[in-house]
């Protein structure tokens, strides 16, 4: 079960750890790719959410690693350090998405109609659905990146 460098595992590199899952793992990767490719919400907005979630999880490897999608460096920094709400370089549309993401990360039950309506204002209902779908898998992969490195290190007698 030994894999490459698992100490700095990132959500984007999870595929190597999940490879023993065969076809199910390939389906998982295809689903993740589809979330980034849908046309209703820009990939740059999802990347800002990925960075915000990484910060909330303390996932330094994801923060320090390469971006999945290129975003402005100052905007990236504002999202990571939490000053995005008062940074004019972050657009109102991006702010609506990140604020939704932040509450989603803490507790999906705490999401308000106002937070959802703000996303709909900028991206429509399909954009809101695309965001919610993507957040689940981005957050999930950040969790797995924290867990599976330690779990898959070393030999497994069953592998």
């Amino acid at each position: 079960m030994k894999t490459n460098d698992t100490t700095a595992m990132t959500s984007d590199r999870l595929g190597s750890l999940l490879a023993p899952g065969g076809e199910m793992a390939r389906s998982f990767e295809r689903a993740y790719a589809s979330l980034w490719a849908q046309p209703h919400l820009p990939a740059t907005a999802l990347e800002l959410c990925r960075l915000r979630l990484a910060r909330l999880h303390g996932a330094t490897a994801d923060i320090d690693g390469p971006s999945r999608v290129a975003v402005d460096a100052a905007k990236r920094a504002a999202v990571i350090n939490g000053s995005y709400a008062r940074d004019d370089r972050v657009s109102p549309a991006e702010r609506a998405v990140i604020e939704f993401c932040e509450v989603y990360a803490m507790d999906a039950q705490a999401i308000t109609d106002e937070l959802a309506a703000a996303v709909v204002t900028h991206f429509g209902e399909p954009g809101l659905v695309a965001l919610i779908e993507a957040l689940g898998f981005i957050d999930g992969r950040l969790r797995l990146a924290r867990m599976l490195g330690p779990l898959f290190e070393g030999a497994n007698p069953h592998a």
């Binding site: 999940l18 899952g21 065969g22 998982f28 989603y104 999401i111 959802a116 898998f137 797995l144 867990m147």
Partner: peptide
Amino acid sequence: FTAEELAHMAIGLTTFNALSRCAVSLG
């Protein structure tokens, strides 16, 4: 568990969690 079993549980759990939080978030 084997490596395959652990990978399948990890993928299943992530999928279940994403879809259930999706249902909650959509109201």
